[in-house]
Simulated assay, not measured.
Amino acid sequence: MTAEPLRVLVTGATGFVGSRLSPILLEAGHDVRAMTRRPEDYHGAGTPVAGDVFEAGSLAEAMDGVEVAVYMVHSLDDADFERKDAEAARNFARAAADAGVRQIVYLGGLGRDDQDLSPHLRSRRQVEKLLGATGVPVTVLRAAIVVGAGGISWEITRQLVKNLPAMIVPKWAATRSQPIAVDDVIRYLVGVIGNEETFGVTYEIGGPDQLSYVEMLQQAAEVINGRRVPVITVPVLTPGLSSHWIRFVTDVDTTTAKNLIDSMSTEVLQHDFSILEVVPGEPLSYQEAVRRAIEEQRTS
């Protein structure tokens, strides 16, 4: 990250990633603006500013004087999320261009462009393109499952492991993914913010482990419970049925669960490692990411 202090706008400042990113940027000496629809209720790091990506007219004041805008918005809790996320990205891109923003940083999703992507991952690609459509350089970090306390994908894993002595899983649970610790996501975001070398570049980020969803459940169970759980794979659980089952066992919203599960039949692995040239360092293992997530939840 540039050593020069920047004015950085963080969207999703109250969310899983944004709430971790803002204090680190503030500690580094940057002027952090935390965009929220209800600034009067914001108590996190940075200066709260009112803004709603679905209300184009609300963004001009939030963007005023901003040099870097970090975009971490999604509508996975809405069945019409593809349309809504496209609308939000268009609004944000226009406002950033009008305000003279130098860089947009976007946390997207892993997956090769030549794959048959799920609606969720296809939407992430569309958002990438729309954010860059008005000429502001976009730096994209593509990640798979992000492991950390409060993350939706992690909460599904944690609660399944905690609440079930054994599991019946669909055949797509054998699909491989490349989970990454939220600490590493933050480290990579910090490393690209304001870094002109990264303007207009897409990077893939991931942890060192390529694991199936079954393996992730088993390794999480080892950390949480000290033992693996029996897992039986069956061919009949569709994403829709799986999401209702997850809703029964966990407190994750059914629509959000279904939109995430739709993506789990797509293998999402890191193939490009050029991010390590920009932000050196060995990422945390999956088990270490799980340990940190559990410890954070235990002490919070």
Rank of each mutant, 00 (worst) to 15 (best):
G44Y: 13
E27I: 00
F16H: 12
T36A: 01
L26E: 15
Y42R: 03
R20G: 07
A28L: 14
I24L: 15
L26I: 00
G15M: 03
E40C: 00
S19R: 14
R20C: 07
V32I: 02
A34N: 03
H30W: 08
R33L: 15
L25V: 11
R33Y: 13
G15E: 10
T47P: 00
E40T: 08
S19I: 05
G18F: 10
R20I: 11
T47Q: 05
T47Y: 00
G29N: 09
R38Y: 13
R38T: 15
R33K: 15
H43P: 00
A28E: 15
A45H: 10
A34V: 04
D41F: 07
L26V: 09
T36R: 01
M35W: 13
L25F: 12
V32Y: 01
D31L: 04
A45W: 13
A45C: 07
H43A: 09
V32A: 02
D31A: 11
A28V: 01
H30P: 06
V17Q: 11
P48Q: 05
R37F: 12
S22L: 03
D41H: 13
T36E: 08
I24T: 14
T47K: 05
S22G: 05
R37E: 12
P48C: 07
R33N: 06
L26S: 15
R33P: 03
G44H: 08
M35C: 06
Y42M: 04
T36P: 04
D31S: 11
R38W: 11
E27A: 15
I24E: 15
R38E: 14
V32S: 01
P48I: 08
F16P: 01
S22R: 01
H30N: 08
H43Y: 03
D41P: 00
L21K: 02
T36D: 09
D41M: 07
R20M: 11
G46M: 13
R38K: 13
G46H: 09
D31F: 07
F16M: 04
S22T: 15
G15P: 10
G46Q: 04
R38A: 14
A45K: 10
E40Q: 14
G15K: 03
S22E: 04
H30M: 05
R33F: 12
D31E: 15
A45P: 08
A28P: 02
P48F: 07
D41G: 14
I24R: 14
L25I: 12
V32R: 01
V17W: 07
R33I: 04
G15I: 09
L21F: 04
A28T: 02
T36H: 05
T47G: 00
I24P: 00
H43K: 11
L26G: 03
G46P: 09
M35P: 10
T47M: 02
F16D: 04
G18N: 05
Y42G: 05
R38F: 11
R33M: 11
R20K: 14
L21W: 04
G18I: 07
G46W: 13
D41S: 14
V32G: 02
A34Q: 03
D31G: 00
H30I: 03
A34S: 14
R37N: 11
G15R: 02
G18C: 06
D41Q: 14
Y42C: 06
A45T: 12
E27D: 14
L21C: 03
Y42F: 15
R20N: 07
